[in-house]
Amino acid sequence: MTINETQDEIIEEFSLFDDWEEKYEYIIDIGKKLPPLQEQFKTEDNIIKGCQSRVWLHADRDDEKVLFAGDSDAVIVKGLIALLIRVLSGHTAEEIARADLYFIDRIGMKQHLAQTRANGLLAMLKQMKLYAVAYSTMSK
């Protein structure tokens, strides 16, 4: 599945929800289901600076593909991480770097990307792209 196909799938899923509560119930649910990041990857280097919750992001490579894993001490952020991982993980560095993540706006979660310092989602997205750019330069 391409990045955009996954995004469209998520948009489709969210279109079933009537209100904010249902959306967040779903995000909380997938947040709880995201496998916890192994303790050895919860390092200072992997921490994304957000003001309110701690967020860790770890990147790995499998041939051409970049694999992401993440975690947070807050559940809703963890659910958002799970969505980002579902969309971006397993794609090539170039695909990730070029990805236009329109699904965040379409599922009504754009406020989580605001510059409020309230959470590290924007920083996390940047970090995922940075990893991708770094990997693609390395392979050239």
């Binding site: 209100d19 509560e21 967040y24 003001c51 309110q52 919750s53 807050a74 559940v75 809703i76 952020v77």
Partner: peptide, 21 residues
């Protein structure tokens, strides 16, 4: 067992503004 950020986000969906952090 509940992070303050989650409390703040869910209260906001109820129209309630509190500060967390």
């Amino acid at each position: 067992g509940i992070h303050h950020q989650d409390i703040g986000i869910i209260l906001d969906t109820q129209g309630i503004a509190v500060r967390t952090g």
